[in-house]
Design a protein around this nucleic acid. Structure first.
Length: 645
RNA sequence: GCCUGGGUAGCUUAGCGGUAAAGCGCGUCCUUGGUAAGGACGAGACCCCGGAUUCAAAUUCCGGCCUAGGCUCCA
């Protein structure tokens, strides 16, 4: 073993340090300031304690308090603080696993009943531990000793068997005599935590497997300072403000009543938005060469037998199916079988392909009750679905054109989406050859369009590779909306064919695609995205006229019925003050308010105000109408009518 | 489906063994207002449903339904 090791720093420079020198030593070698600020290190990409000795050549990055990585370290220590507090107050509690997460940490525990009161007591104890500022010390113990310590704890023993397989000795972190098996790293002392709190709890399964023991997962978070925690809490409260369920109620868009769990009822305001979306998507489907069809929700269950879906769905209990007159019926969980039927009704030449069918298809899926969530996860949904039957040599062009339109759509809504390519998994059908070809086709299409995407290896459906578009909700959760999928399974299983140039039957490839996904989920996403401030073309109410006094209602009616008849306009004729009418219109997120009094009536103008700022413009009616028309026709997100001096 | 919360007027919530309260909204009236909440009066509640305990239950207990967050799931 050499006396020195060579470390490579992030800027590419190298440094020689003594064998066994620590991460902290390297930092001090760079500069005393950095040395003092060092809290941990990234060695060849692995997060380690600052006192970790370096025994071989490596790349190293110093982690300081300013970095996200540090926050992870701090929160990991937070998890230990919770665990110690829990065992102080409930010595019988068994610990399983307690990692940091993006937003904080959790610890899976068992052997205790935790209600709000006991958690409050634990939280108080946590604060005491932080205040006491105990040092954290890394201690190596022989493997045998660790197994002894956890004689009664199957979870820690499992960790020793798996994560720490073959390691001897194994590391513990000790604070105030309390210890936990842990790889680290951690901050120096519990006092480094400036603010710590518990957030919620839930059930979790050991190793995430429903078959395993159920544990109690307690979530918390920790920050370097109270201010950061306060900012975090504020962000959560802001997220609540944009919750689509709250806005949906406030704007009277939809409801999901107890008599149909998971099935949204669109109120008139919500239906106006949905209709605009439908018309928009119809245009896009026309552009893509789709023919609109309509297929029934009610089918014999036999329909889904040859495709293999019936078996799969029934196993999961995800299909609504029942027996009637000795025959099994079901509500369709997807539209593809029906569309394949329409394809199969006719004969198709290679010249006719692609053959494309679109449908606003309403499907029902028996999602688990605990999974339902407003419009984002529902049991009844209407997809802007479409299926294209294409030749193998058409894959790339078909996908490229579809993605081009999809990109255009998401640009229009100013929505940031994550493109994900899901590739072949273990359960795949079809030969490797076609999978490779199809996956490459999807890649080529995305690259041709310059789209950034991530690859989720092995995540594809069994029938073909898939591109999913994920959007985030107010809480940062990801939801798949649009999707483009290739399918080799259904054409095979249903024996779909077209006649080739050689006058022989050939197998088409099927493309499943949804541009918005479903109207339900897409609306949920854009409600949160726009915080209810829909672009004018989508807004249920586009203009509200506020007469200054009742004498001006006549002028308001003329505006609504004659000048602005092509828009969605209402008149606020309640006997309120102008200030109150403005307040209410802001609360209702109406894009434009027109304040009209005697002055405006005389000159044929309107005093315009938008919902975002105290923006004022006095415009003659025709100018306002023309500008509003442009904004609506172009489906603009930003208001076009601005202050005029 | 599982764990922990929650379900009280149209909405948001307070009350938590002694017969239901506030703000907003709604109705009537006064006010006719000029750019972010004018005033008065009034109507409105099987306190989620079913059982149990009690002289007495919105309140305690048991069961169910719905709902929130998370877990599992998402063809």
């Amino acid at each position: 073993m050499s006396e020195h090791v060579t470390v490579v720093l992030p800027d590419g420079s190298t440094m020689e340090v003594e064998h066994g020198a620590t991460v902290e030593d390297v930092a001090y070698g760079i500069g005393p300031g950095l040395g003092r600020d060092t809290v941990a290190g990234l060695v060849d990409g692995d997060l380690v304690d600052k006192v970790t000795p370096l025994t071989e050549d490596c790349e190293i990055e110093i982690v300081t308090e300013d970095s996200d990585v540090y926050r992870q370290v701090l929160r990991h220590t937070g998890a230990h603080v919770f665990a110690q507090a829990l065992q102080r107050t409930h010595p019988e509690a068994k610990l399983a696993i307690g990692p940091p997460t993006d937003d904080g940490f959790y610890y899976d525990v068992t052997g205790v009943d935790l209600d709000e009161e006991t958690l409050a007591a634990v939280e108080a104890e946590m604060e005491a531990i932080v205040a006491a500022d105990y040092d954290l010390e890394r201690v190596e113990r022989p493997r045998e000793e660790a197994l002894d310590i956890y004689e009664d704890n199957p979870y820690k023993r499992d960790i020793l068997e798996r994560e720490a397989a073959g390691e001897d000795p194994v590391s513990f972190y000790v604070q105030d005599g309390w210890q936990d098996l842990c790889e680290g790293p951690h901050v120096d002392s519990t006092g480094a935590i400036g603010a710590i709190t518990l957030l919620e709890q839930s059930a979790a399964y050991w190793r995430g497997d429903e078959e395993n023991d159920q544990l109690t997962r307690v979530y918390g978070t920790a920050f370097g300072s109270e201010e950061e925690l306060a900012a975090f809490i504020e962000r959560r409260e802001e997220a609540e403000e944009r919750d689509h369920r709250k806005i949906g109620r406030e704007m009277d868009l939809f409801s999901v009543p107890a008599h149909s769990p998971g099935c949204a009822h669109y109120h008139p305001n919500g239906m106006r938005i949905r209709r605009e979306l439908q018309e928009y998507i119809r245009d896009k489907n026309d552009d893509l060469g789709y023919e609109e069809v309509c297929t029934p929700e009610l089918n014999k269950a036999k329909l889904w037998e040859p495709t293999g879906h019936l078996e799969a769905f029934k196993e999961e209990g995800e299909m609504f199916a029942w027996e009637q007159d000795d025959t099994e019926y079901g509500l369709k969980p997807m539209n593809c079988a029906n569309h394949a039927h329409i394809y199969d009704e006719g004969q198709h030449s290679y010249r006719d392909l692609p053959v494309r069918f679109s449908e606003f298809g309403t499907v029902y899926r028996n999602e688990q009750s605990g999974e339902l969530s407003g419009l984002l996860r529902v049991r009844g949904l209407t997809q802007d679905d479409g299926h294209a039957f294409i030749r193998r040599d058409q894959i790339e062009s078909e996908i490229t054109e579809t993605l081009r339109i999809i990109e255009e759509i998401y640009d229009l809504f100013d929505l940031e989406v994550l493109y994900k390519l899901e590739t072949k998994g273990d359960n795949a059908v079809g030969d490797d050859d076609i999978w490779r070809e199809a996956t490459q086709g999807l890649r080529n299409s995305m690259e041709a369009l310059g789209l950034e995407y991530s690859v989720e290896a092995g995540e594809a459906a069994f029938y073909g590779p898939k591109i999913g578009l994920d959007a985030r909700d107010a809480l940062g959760r990801e939801w798949t909306i649009g999707t483009v999928q290739l399918d080799f399974n259904i054409p095979e299983r249903l024996d779909l064919t077209y006649v080739g140039e050689d006058n022989q039957p050939h197998r088409p490839v099927m493309v499943h695609r949804a541009l918005l996904g479903s109207f339900e989920r897409f609306m949920g996403v854009i409600i949160e995205h726009f915080k209810g401030n829909f672009p004018t073309w989508l807004a249920p109410e586009q203009v509200r006229i506020l007469p200054v006094s009742d004498d001006n209602i006549g002028y308001a009616k003329r505006l609504k019925n004659r000048d602005l008849s092509e828009f969605r306009v209402t008149i606020e004729d309640r006997s309120w003050t102008v200030g109150k009418k403005i307040q209410q219109s802001h609360d209702d997120r109406v894009p434009y308010m027109l304040i009209v009094g005697d002055d405006e009536a005389e000159t044929g103008t309107v005093s315009v105000r938008d919902r975002f700022e105290n923006q004022l413009a006095d415009l003659d009616v025709e100018t306002f109408r023309a500008q509003l028309d442009t904004e609506v026709q172009q489906k603009r997100v930003e208001p076009t009518i601005v202050r005029n001096g």
